[in-house]
Amino acid sequence: MRGIPPSGDLLALARSGDGEAFRGLVEPYRRELQVHCYRILGSVQDAEDLLQETLLAAWRGIDGYEERASLRTWLYRIATNRCLNALRAGARRPPEHADYRPEVPLPEPSHRRAEPSWLEPYPDALLDEIADLAPGPEARYETRESVSLAFLAALQELPPRQRAVLVLRDVLGFRAAEVARVLDTTENAVTSALKRARGALARELPGSGREGAPLPDSPRERRIVADFLRAFEAGDVDAVVALLTDDARLSMPPLPLEYRGTDTVRHFLATVALRPGRRHVLVPTRANGQPAFGAYQRDPRTPILHAHGVIVLTLAGDRIAAVTRFLDNSLLAAFGLPRTLRAGFEEGR
Rank of each mutant, 00 (worst) to 15 (best):
A295G: 11
V265G: 00
S117K: 00
A47G: 10
V26I: 05
L244Y: 12
G235P: 11
H36Y: 15
P300C: 14
S208R: 13
D263Q: 04
S218F: 14
V241Q: 07
A180G: 08
E129H: 05
A242L: 08
S70I: 03
T285C: 14
A226Y: 07
F151L: 14
R349W: 15
P214Y: 13
R319D: 01
A202I: 10
E53D: 15
R92F: 04
A14P: 02
T186C: 04
R2P: 00
S148P: 04
L126A: 08
L75C: 07
R319Y: 09
A200S: 03
L50W: 12
P256L: 03
R266Y: 00
L244W: 04
E96F: 09
H97N: 09
S330C: 10
D128W: 11
L84V: 02
R249F: 06
F326C: 13
A333F: 10
A189G: 06
P284L: 11
P5Y: 10
R223V: 00
R319N: 00
D246W: 09
A287E: 13
L158P: 01
E187M: 14
R319E: 01
N81K: 09
E187A: 01
L243Y: 00
D184Y: 01
S43F: 15
A180H: 06
G199H: 12
V310M: 14
F232M: 12
L194I: 07
P216C: 08
D328R: 11
L71C: 07
P214F: 05
A322V: 00
Q290M: 00
R181C: 00
I62D: 09
E258N: 08
A164C: 07
P94N: 12
R39K: 02
L331D: 08
L25M: 11
L10K: 13
T245C: 09
L183A: 10
R339K: 07
E178V: 03
D318V: 02
P28A: 05
T285G: 07
R30H: 13
A139G: 07
G209I: 06
D328G: 09
C83N: 04
R220D: 06
Q34T: 12
L149G: 02
A333Q: 11
M1I: 07
G261A: 04
P160W: 09
Q45M: 14
R101A: 08
T324F: 03
G336S: 13
I311W: 09
P206S: 02
N188K: 15
E178G: 09
R15E: 03
A273Y: 12
F22D: 03
A295L: 14
R140Y: 13
A58G: 05
M1Y: 10
L126M: 13
G348V: 02
E96G: 04
E27T: 02
T302V: 04
P6T: 01
R325W: 10
A295P: 04
G173P: 01
S218D: 06
Y100M: 03
R210N: 02
